[in-house]
Every structure is written in structure tokens, then in C-alpha cells.
Design a protein around this nucleic acid. Structure first.
Lengths: 129, 129, 129, 129
DNA sequence: GTGGTCTAGACCACA
DNA sequence: GTGGTCTAGACCACA
């Protein structure tokens, strides 16, 4: 898989990396057990500091997306539910609040925003696991 | 109109202020030419730092929502587009991508994610008049 | 409250800091809404790098123990359940495995280890929330 | 005796090896003077790096569990205490403190924590003979 | 002032 | 080689 970073973006670099890996996992591009590039290698590719990649990997480990083994590398973990229903909703809401604020700022209305999300979700074609 | 600020919220205070003014404009609660409270006055009302209100106003001026007239205060400006259609979509898409990866790794599916966005949008009552 | 760091310890410094704050919270020394020292101030006190303190705070934020507000500081958050039952057990087990390995290395047997844990728990006198 | 290694485990491989040998000694499965497989042979059996086995053996030698006799291999040593009683307790307490803060912030209470430790200890069958 | 991000560079544990 | 931790120092967003 190909990870890319947009330096001028609002999103922190480590967030961009983590999000792209999340997307690759939910879209099936990365499967359980698949190895990820090493921290140093990916850092070199993206021309960012290894600490930044490590931060992204650490977040994904905490959220149960990755497993790391010192000396061996990082691998896609078996999917498991880490957060309570309430916590999951809290996190989803926080992400949605950001989108709503951005849509509002850009002048999109309710229906346009919903329609655009629907379109993008349908493109991914992700089914409930 | 009444602006309210929740200090413990995830959203920065200046964001909360700017978003509420934007919503008031979109919903027709505020019309072109309507005056806004002065930075100082609003800051006093909301019990926040004047810099914070100034930052919200500055963003709205930059985006063409407000106009300031030296010595007279700030007013709702005539709507004008700052970004091209393509640029607006590109920015919305970036925000939506983040929501999608977050939602899906949290285990929400297409319908749940859409439904939650719909719910939140309806609560805010963000619709073009 | 007084936080202390043992430089020669096996435990990472950021882990020591986070654990001590956790203990202060569960023992009631720190209550909901209580402010914590700023990252920079605590770093100065402990003579460690601010990044290290920030890392501890970030972990506590993720685990729902703290809330940070940019520009205002860090505060003890209202207790909430973040993790699923399975995840909580997974984390407890990981911690217990470390203790068991340490006890074994030090030559303590089953009963001695259990007894010591009981003793320490009773001293804390913590009731189910 | 049969040593087994779980590569995906949280515990480092050298820890798993050392702990299993310690348990075999404590439970009487291995007695003073019993020979251990050579580093190379055990590494081959477990399909791990010889350095890893060597590290486990080195720790056990340091702690007085094993003795190596040049050219003859490694043997279970006569039990001797490396740390004073006070030092042993100090180290156990440090490990227990971490478990306690982890358990309590996860929302486990005194009895649940004790019960889980008991369960895990019984499973491992760690008792002085 | 506050917390958050990032870099450059070092050192450690582990395999 | 792998990931994890820490420091020193810079810069940013926010209040």
C-alpha cells in the first residue's frame, strides 16, 4: 500500500498516517497479519521524522489496529472491540462535529453534506464485519 | 441572537463562536447588514478572552461572512464565494475521509454513520432558508 | 500532590508519572475537576523533558482520566468507562503477567504474592465507584 | 521438560523462556544438578534466535538459578538468595503498585483484582513444593 | 501563559 | 535489523 502525507494540511502528519492505515484496513487493502513497513523505512519514504511514524503506529496499537513486536516489526492485528458503546459514540461524535464545522465553513448545507458522505461511503463498499 | 460557549467542549471557543454566527447567517437569523456586538462586548458577555472573539471575527471576515467598518463595528456581509467549487469539495472530502476512517475502525457501518450525521445535523438545524 | 520519579527504575519515566496520577485519582487524593500542574512546570520539578510529561498526560487523556484544554491546562476528568469488559480484562491480565513474572523471579510463591497484593489493596481502602 | 514460546505474546521471548525454567524449578520439575539443553539446541527447538535463549540463560545465571560449566553446559544450581528480604519486597511492591493503579483505573475493585491474580497463579501452578 | 506537533539525534531492549 | 524512550529545541494554536 502507498501512504502519502500532505505537509500543508491541517491534519497532523501522524494523524494522516494513522488514518490512511485505518482506511486500508477497513477497506480490506490490509489484512490481519500483514506486515507494515518499519518505522524507519516509512519515515524515510515519507521524509518525516521516525518519531512521527512511531507516534502513528503507537496510536494504532492502542486502538487495537496494529500489534508491534520489538525486533520483528508491526502487523495488522485481529479485529477486536476495544471501546464501550458510549466511548465509540463519543469519538464518532467528535469526528462528526469537525466535519459539520468544516461543511458549514465551506457553505455546504445539510443535504449536500449528507449526500457527499453517502457517496464516499458507497464507494468504499464496506460491510459490517 | 444569543451566542453560547461551552468551555469544556472539544471545539475551541473561537470555533464555537464562529460556527454559531455562521449558522445564524445560514438559517436567516442574521441578515445582510445586521450588526454584531463589538469584540469587547461579546467577550464580556461570554466571559472569554477578547483575543478569542477577535479571532472568530477575523476568520469570518477572511471567509467573507462579516465586514468590519472602521469605527462602526462588524456587520453581516453580502454572501460571496471565497473558494472554487472544486476546492470546496476537496476540503469537504478531506474532512469526510477522516470521519470515515474513524467511524469504520470504531465498528460503525455505513448506515449507522450516516444516521448519526443526519441526527446531529438536524439537531443543529443547519439548512439553507 | 507530590509526584516523584525514580530514574534508575525499569519503568519508563512517563509510565511512572501516569501511574502516580492514576493512583492519586483512585485513592481520592485528586478529585474531578482538580487541575494538574502544567506540563512545563511538572517537567521542571521532576527535571525531565516536557515531552515526557506530555506523553504521560496524553496517555491519561486517552484513557479518560484527564481532560486537557489548550491554553488552560489539564484537569481530572469525570470518571467514565472507556474500555469494553474484554479489553479491560486484557489490560489487567497484561499487568498481572508482569507481576507474576517479577514475583517468580524474586522467589515469592503463590500465597506470598497474593497476600502482599491483598495487604496493599487494603491499605488503599478503595471501594467500587 | 517442555518449553513453549508464544511469538505473539506481550512477554518478550527471552522472558517466556526464563519464566518457564523458573517455574519448573519452583515446582520441582527440575532439580538441582539437572542439565538444560544447550543454547543452540533449545533455540533450534523453539525456532528462535540463539541470542534470545542465551539472554534467558544469562539472566538465570545472574539470579543464581543456573550454573554453566565450561564445555559441559548449563545445570540447575543450588538455590541461593541474591537479594535481601527487604530488597525483594521493595521490588515486588513496585510491580504491585503498577498493577493496582492499572486495575483501579480500569474499574476493577479489590476483590476482582485479587481473584484474577489468584486465578492466573493457579493456572500457572506456581507453588513451593 | 497553556497543550500539541515535529525534528534531530541518542540510547536501550529485543530478535 | 526492529520498536520504545528520552532529550533538546523549535514552532504552532489557543486563551
Amino acid at each position: 500500500m502507498q501512504i502519502r502525507v500532505i505537509p500543508g494540511s491541517n491534519a497532523a502528519i501522524y494523524r494522516q498516517i494513522a488514518d490512511q492505515i485505518r482506511r486500508a484496513v477497513v477497506s480490506g487493502q490490509l489484512a490481519v497479519g500483514d506486515p507494515l513497513p518499519s518505522v524507519r523505512q516509512l519515515a524515510k519514504e515519507l521524509v518525516v521524522n521516525p518519531n512521527t511514524v512511531a507516534k502513528a503506529y503507537a496510536e494504532l496499537v492502542r486502538d487495537g489496529v496494529l500489534e508491534t513486536q520489538a525486533g520483528r516489526g508491526a502487523f495488522i492485528a485481529k479485529r477486536r472491540d476495544v471501546f464501550t458503546k458510549t466511548e465509540r459514540l463519543r469519538r464518532l461524535d467528535a469526528a462528526l462535529d469537525t466535519v459539520i464545522s468544516e461543511a458549514l465553513t465551506l457553505g455546504f448545507d445539510r443535504d449536500e453534506t449528507l449526500e457527499r458522505l453517502r457517496l464516499k461511503l458507497d464507494r468504499l463498499d464496506v460491510a459490517k464485519p
